[in-house]
């Protein structure tokens, strides 16, 4: 099994290290923003910061107008421009599974990575302000301890959950199973199988970033 409940239980027993990736089925996404909220709940990000969000756009004209949705988040690129431009090494690729992460203790808050990310999915954490006025809620007080103000922030694919053998919160929450998460290096994983069967494209592939995120149109 390689579903969202147990992404690390693939059959990749070879020498290849896991490369976590995500395929997003655009036919299944209904723009409910459940993933956006699940991410906020799991990671306790402050107002204005969305590690995961679903963009929307109106297409066509009445009576044939419709809304289209595009979930966006960190692509955990194989060749990440945010890592290249970081002057301190705060943005780095974790060797064991190719996740792009941030060491907040090293981040100087220069914003170079925020600007360099072609996917606009990095944020600079502001000073701690809650959703409900000046005073933080008990949940916010606890959650905000996980990140330092004025450092870069972004989706980690819920690395803390991955390290426990769980899948990202957004994947677990998605009611239509539009988000498929797994090991791209494991040919038996669900994501690899879907990618073999379906046409897919990587966002801004022309930049050579080799994102670990694929859209299935």
């Amino acid at each position: 099994m390689d579903g969202p409940e147990n992404p690390g239980a693939g059959k990749n027993q070879g020498s290849l290290r896991p490369r976590w990736g995500m395929a997003i089925d655009l036919k299944r996404c209904v723009g409910c923003q459940s993933c956006t909220l699940a991410c906020k709940l799991e990671n306790g990000t402050p107002p204005g910061t969305f590690w995961m969000r679903v963009l929307e756009k109106e297409e066509g004209v009445f009576p044939l107008a419709r809304k289209v949705f595009l979930p966006v988040r960190c692509n955990h690129c194989n060749n990440p421009p945010c890592v290249t431009v970081c002057p301190t090494g705060a943005s780095y690729t974790r060797e064991q599974d190719n996740l792009v992460l941030i060491n907040q203790d090293k981040c100087i808050g220069c914003r170079a990575c925020v600007v360099a990310c072609p996917y606009q999915v990095r944020f600079l954490a502001g000073d701690s302000k809650g959703y409900y006025g000046e005073e933080l809620t008990p949940y916010e007080r606890t959650a905000y301890q996980n990140w330092q103000p004025r450092t870069a922030q972004k989706c980690t694919f819920c690395v803390h959950r991955l390290d426990q053998g769980l899948g990202p919160a957004c994947v677990q929450t998605c009611p239509t199973r539009a988000l498929i998460f797994g090991d791209l290096n494991d040919p038996e994983s669900e994501i690899s199988q879907v990618m073999r069967e379906r046409f897919r494209w990587q966002p801004r592939a022309e930049l050579g970033t080799d994102p670990s995120l694929y859209y299935l149109p």
Partner: peptide, 21 residues
């Protein structure tokens, strides 16, 4: 302009990839 000016010394760490460094 930096979020953490006290850590600015770290900005010399990546001269082989970062133009800021």
């Amino acid at each position: 302009e930096l979020g953490h000016p006290a850590r600015a010394w770290r900005a010399i760490c990546r001269p082989f990839s970062s133009w800021i460094s």
